[in-house]
Nucleic acid binder design. Structure first.
Lengths: 147, 147
DNA sequence: CCTAATGTCTCTAGCAGCTATAGCTTCAAG
DNA sequence: CTTGAAGCTATAGCTGCTAGAGACATTAGG
């Protein structure tokens, strides 16, 4: 049986985060010691590792909740899990595309900012003027996704 | 003179977001009409476009605040702006690297999830087991950065 | 000129996904 | 047996918005 601190260490998750996951129902309420401290078993560790890992991969907590509920009924088709992963893949590809354009833009800005004063510095100009953009940022108006 | 709605439309920023930027001091308080409605000029539009564009490029509001303060005193060296852009470039490159690894992982998961039941489904298995990882997610423990 | 439909106003609360603080209790080592 | 770390609950804060309530302003049509 692990205390919350040991569990956090083992799974690479901070202690308050574990309590937070319990609070929002991602982790079940664990046993308590005589002194009211949480005690976790190996199953809890696995579940937490699953969550941690999925978070690392960029899954939002809601998707993780879905995946966990799927894994609780292992006789069903995994199509649903596949859909969740596929959606994540699309989101990730979109982010990569955007970041790559962004990288080019920043490199261009930095190259052009060659020891002048801000008056000549295109960093600000590039950011002010849509027409100077290599990429069309306007396309994503309203999507508001994380970059 | 533009009303807040027209300005938002022109700059691709939602109305409450404009008011939010004003509230946190990124935009100056504009003139008001006789009926107390905000009225913006072309300068305000440029500044908002600057902010919008920088947000699109992934700059946090604090960096934007710095850039704006630089642009307010254009006689200084652009070295500071360059530093900000360079920092952002590094962050962007790190994000791209992480997302690319993540993409490979998701593709692997999806390929392995071949219409079976969840019991055989590797999506969940892959997420449960660190040892199956192509990439070392453990390295970034504690950084907690956006993906 | 009047009315109805927008648009705008302020204020407050909420979202994700944690993180930090305060003030207490419990546990393990020396 | 004491002390210091680790645990407990509860609450508030963070970023960058977004949504709602309820009241006033503006504009287009009849």
């Amino acid at each position: 049986m692990l205390t919350i601190g040991k569990l956090g260490e083992a799974a690479g998750v901070k202690v308050p985060t574990i309590r937070y996951y319990e609070q929002i129902g991602l982790l079940p309420e664990p046993e308590r010691s005589a002194g009211n401290q949480r005690l976790y078993d190996a199953k809890a560790h696995d579940r937490l590792a699953f969550i941690r890992h999925a978070r690392d991969l960029g899954f939002p907590l809601e998707a993780i909740r879905d995946l966990l509920s799927l894994s609780d009924k292992p006789d069903q088709s995994c199509a649903a899990a596949d859909i969740i992963a596929t959606e994540q893949l699309a989101a990730v590809e979109a982010r990569i595309a955007r970041l790559t354009a962004l990288k080019a833009e920043l490199e261009r800005m930095i190259t052009q900012c060659a020891q002048g004063t801000i008056a000549d510095c295109r960093v600000i100009e590039v950011l002010s003027d849509h027409a100077l953009c290599a990429e069309d940022h306007r396309a994503k108006t309203g999507s508001g996704g994380a970059v």
